[in-house]
Design a protein around this nucleic acid. Structure first.
Lengths: 155, 155
DNA sequence: ACAAGTATGCACCTTTTGGTAAGTGCCCAA
DNA sequence: TTGGGCACTTACCAAAAGGTGCATACTTGT
């Protein structure tokens, strides 16, 4: 759903094909066109973290380490079992999360970040910081857009 | 659409490479409860960049500076007018992009990043880097998941 | 005259995503 | 025995998000 960046690379009519790393004050460096299916690294990254609850899940796991399903379920409030499981499965399939099943009698399973998951969590830090710093602006904009003018602590 | 979360962890010196899921060290700080509507900074950020083509748009604008609608359209191939316009409008509403209309006779308009947009673009760099570095893994996973031929990655 | 380009708008649809409610098998406490 | 918790699974739905295609008003090129 969310953030994808489709395929293909830049193009043609423009004469710029430099790969030069961005200058110090420049913003973003040119992504390497890499593997088929992705336009760039950002594309790959976003495909993997896109999911309503994925970042939150990563967040909890990064914070609390191995966490049992039930705990996660309670931590990420408002998420349904179906979706939680679904997102966990995708994260697992993507190698970001590890599921451990202690084949015990009353089921016991826990989830934790893999090294890859940890590295991604770190890459997310700047975004988190950005959001925190600019939340006021973002919030204002969303207020108008969605109409919840004042407060609305719902969920 | 919505992606929530916040992960603010800083483990400067601690590198990752293998390492077991570190028992929840205290290097991740709780989200600042923030404003109504957001769980945390990452949540705010992701809401703003979530859109199939938004990151790519930001990417082009960060790279090429002010870009006319038509150029953008050609650069971001496979996007439809409706969606491109839509995403641009949202980015504009969110204060990340500035639209300039040179009220000329054959319409002429261009888009560029605002300072806020630039700052976000910078926060996206680590994600881009992460994706580039781990694209092989991600690609492999997606190959199986989606079934498209991943010829060369033979494992 | 006519096609093409410019930057959109709009109606209509399909796909994707998330949500609800119920059920499963097993065990334990009341 | 009933009820609850555990970790899911499934069928069915609703809401988003994205896509297609046509339309606009005006101009320039052929």
């Amino acid at each position: 759903m969310h953030l994808l960046v489709s395929a293909q690379k830049v193009s043609s009519d423009r004469s710029d094909q430099n790969l030069a790393p961005a200058p110090a004050e420049a913003d973003v460096q040119r992504c390497t066109p890499t593997l088929p299916g992705f336009t760039c690294g950002l594309d790959a990254t976003l495909r993997v973290v896109s999911g309503k609850w994925k970042p939150l899940i990563m967040y909890f796991l990064a914070q609390d380490g191995p966490t049992r399903y039930g705990e996660l379920r309670r931590a990420v409030r408002d998420v349904s079992d179906k979706v939680l499981i679904q997102q966990l499965k995708e994260l697992e399939a993507d190698g970001l999360v590890k599921r451990t099943d202690y084949k015990e009698v009353p089921p016991r399973v826990d989830y934790s970040l893999t090294p890859l998951g940890h590295s991604l969590a770190q890459a997310l830090v700047p975004l988190c910081t950005w959001g925190t710093e600019h939340m006021a602006e973002v919030s204002r904009v969303f207020a108008e857009r969605d109409g919840w003018t004042t407060k609305r602590t719902g969920q």
